[in-house]
Each structure stands twice: as structure tokens, then as C-alpha cells.
């Protein structure tokens, strides 16, 4: 998995609302390499969530391109003229949401096995086995038969992470995964994410956890007003910020 190379190439991505009145994304270009742990920071309303949600087209960008594993998924057809099925590409892009979005009518195990069984045609026995192994890794194997409502916020988010992992994605997208958690539960979720990063998973993480960005990220992006204003290693971003907006932002959050 850790072979190097570009996994996602984003070019001049724009997302406008109301004509051109609101520019949520105003020309963002960036490459995500395999094995990257890319952390996106910035003030609220900076477009970082919109950027992340555009990567798997939960937001339909106004213009620009997103080339994922060689295919421009913003187009209707690929280079060979074949119709692009976004559902197939999404299977390879796991996503974790701020509000977990577990399926309340399914058990934890069912939450995890549903997509592999229905979409990949994996046998229920094999899917269960893999899901249990994943739950074991995040210390929740004993809750496999529980319903989401019976879990704490931190447990829910850990399940949401392994639910996405059960599809064996090539990249994981995290949309403020700890923002809706009680403070004492943030650590357990960040620990899971850190383990994942150490295993070589390609990750794009939108977060306000500067500690995580500094410690786990290998690249940090700073966004404001829909633009990518600065990019660099955690060391460069946190210890030698160039852009005045970034300097101002860091002075408020650190």
C-alpha cells in the first residue's frame, strides 16, 4: 500500500454558491501522495470541509478536476469514453464524519458488514470475520452486537472509522472527527487515527486538533476564504509560518 506516487490530484477546484456570490472553494490545487497524512487546518468557514467533501463528490464542485487513481471523477466519462461510476470510486475512499452517521437501525457488526457484503459480494461469514478483527483493533469487539445508540461518542466514532476501513479503502477522509466529542473522548479517537497513520494509510484530515497535526501529519495545509494559503511540513507551518493569516490563526489556537 505504501508505494509512493500520486493518489489524488486536485486542480483549480472551485465551489460557488448563488452564482459567484459565495466562494466556498476558490481555486484549490494540491496532490495527495500515497502514504500522506495530510492535515487541513484553518478558521471555520475557510472551505476545508467543502474541500474534503469534494474529494469524494459529496459536494459537486463548480469547476476544476479531481483525478483519483488516474481517473478524473468530476467528469461523466473517462479517457476511454467509459461512463464513470462514482459509487465504485467512493468504495476506495473511506469517510469519517463529525457526527459519526452510524446506521441506527443496524448493530455495530451490521454497520460494518453491510457495504462489504452488498457492494463487494463478500460472504457474510468472511465479512463478519474481518469486521470482528477490525473491532478487536479498536477495542470494541465486545460491542459487536450493540446498537449505535448504546455507545458513547468516542466509541461511535471508532466504529465509524472501522466501518469505513471494512471496505479496504485506499484513502481515508476525516471531516472534523473529534469536533462533536466530549473532551475526554477525543484522545481515544485520535489514538486510533494515529495507529492508522503509522500503518501507512493515506489520510486527509480536517481538524482543529493542532497537536495531532503537528505530531502525526507529514503535511499541513492552511486554508482561508476558500483558498490554500500555505502548505508545508508540520515543523514549517507551526514553527515558521509565512502567511500573515496563518500567523494570526496560530496565535489564536495555540
Amino acid at each position: 500500500m505504501a508505494t509512493s506516487g500520486k493518489l489524488i490530484e486536485v486542480r483549480d477546484l472551485k465551489k460557488y454558491y448563488n452564482g459567484e456570490a459565495i466562494k466556498a472553494l476558490d481555486g484549490v490545487s494540491v496532490d495527495v501522495n500515497r502514504g500522506d497524512v495530510m492535515v487541513v487546518i484553518g478558521p471555520s468557514g475557510s472551505g476545508k470541509s467543502t474541500f474534503l467533501r469534494s474529494l469524494n463528490l459529496l459536494e459537486q464542485p463548480t469547476s476544476g478536476s479531481i483525478v483519483f487513481e488516474g481517473v478524473d471523477i468530476t467528469k461523466k466519462t473517462d479517457a476511454q469514453g467509459k461512463r464513470i461510476n462514482i459509487d465504485l470510486h467512493r468504495q476506495k475512499m473511506g469517510m469519517v464524519f463529525q457526527h459519526f452517521n452510524l446506521f441506527p437501525h443496524k448493530t455495530i457488526l451490521q454497520n460494518m458488514t453491510m457495504a462489504p457484503i452488498k457492494l463487494k459480494g463478500i460472504s457474510p461469514a468472511e465479512a463478519n470475520e474481518k469486521a470482528m478483527a477490525l473491532l478487536e483493533r479498536v477495542g470494541l469487539a465486545d460491542r459487536a452486537g450493540a446498537y449505535p445508540i448504546q455507545l458513547s461518542g468516542g466509541q461511535k466514532q471508532r466504529v465509524a472509522i472501522v466501518r469505513a476501513l471494512a471496505m479496504e479503502p485506499d484513502v481515508m477522509l476525516f471531516d472534523e472527527p473529534t469536533s462533536a466529542l466530549d473532551p475526554e473522548m477525543v484522545g481515544e479517537v485520535l489514538d486510533v487515527m494515529k495507529k492508522l497513520a503509522l500503518e501507512g494509510m493515506t489520510m486527509v484530515v480536517v481538524t482543529h486538533e493542532m497537536g495531532f497535526a503537528r505530531e502525526v501529519g507529514n503535511r499541513v495545509l492552511f486554508m482561508a476564504d476558500g483558498k490554500l494559503l500555505e502548505e508545508g511540513t508540520p515543523d514549517a507551518i507551526f514553527n515558521a509560518p509565512q502567511n500573515p493569516r496563518l500567523q494570526d490563526f496560530l496565535s489564536k489556537v495555540l
Partner: peptide, 24 residues
Amino acid sequence: GQTEAARSLGFSQAQTMRYIVLPQ
């Protein structure tokens, strides 16, 4: 968010309706 989670896993619009939205 239920629809978004299902679509992000790769479920089609129809599958999302059938397996996730309608039962709820």
C-alpha cells in the same frame, strides 16, 4: 448524514434509499 454516510461507502442512490433511508 445517513445518506452521506451510505453514499461515501459506495452505495448507489437506490441502494441508499432501500437499505438505509426507508427502514428508518
